[in-house]
Amino acid sequence: MPQALLARGLCRRYSWSGGHQDALRGVDLEVPTGTVLGLIGRNGAGKTTFLRIASTSLLPTAGSMQVLGHDVVTDAVNVRERIAVIPQESRPFYWMNPRELVYYYLTMRGETHRVAREKAAEALAELGLTRWENTVVSRLSGGLRRRAMVAMVMASDAELLFLDEPTTGLDPIARRSVWEAIRKAAKANRTIFLTTHYLDEADALSDRLALLESGKLLASGTRDDLAALARRPYRVEVSDGFPEEELRSYGDLSRVGERWMLFTGEKEARELSRRALEKGIRLSLGPVSLEDIFLQMVGQDISVEGEE
């Protein structure tokens, strides 16, 4: 499968008088055409820096990146004709309504007026914004504004869409409508590059995942590939009944409210289930979630801020 994005040894250093910060440290990553890639990591892990280099807003300090077969440094013009981006924390013009936002974004990109009108109506309907299409942005809620931004890039003819935290601040229902739009775009063989720190979102949408931490790529692949990399692929939750020392002997143990949570291997999980049956203790057992994998790889909660 051809690669929509191919990064090799990508580095980015931010320098200022008296110091510097390496936001990316030799990242290698591939994104096959027509897939949804979810780039996950804590705040400050380097996700936005990576996305900004890929969307030609920022130059790398070392390494190379090709987007849709063109080098992002030397051949940015050809990249730009085929991509679209929603930057993190971007906001729409407050004096325009959603219909105008999408329409003028499309005509600015070069669409004819007729096509822009049609595509705007279609994208607004898809994101559940038809009811508000003539309401100026200043009267819309934060969630509706964010959806209008998503509608802008979804309506474009870009083959590769970069979405930087597209659902931040949205309620669960609005998030689902954005997810549906992303899924529909993916079905139309568009490539989606999504950064998010909502792991459920990355899990629900992505064909492939990449985990970035402190500017380094810790892992990339399908959900199963990442699960296989987890040191302890099973998660056990159990109430009191087992001595703490015994539970600790099965794997990584932590206390979550009134329950014990344990990451463990397959053999240990079987043994623990057998012991629970013998003792008549109830436990829940299942494969690790994406969040569990993240915790095991990074060693901290995703909500803990990384160094910026």
Binding site: S57, A84, V85, M108
Partner: peptide, 14 residues
Amino acid sequence: DLKYQEMAVASPVK
């Protein structure tokens, strides 16, 4: 503030 320039950069607009 709006990050609109970034959207324009990542488009055919020069």
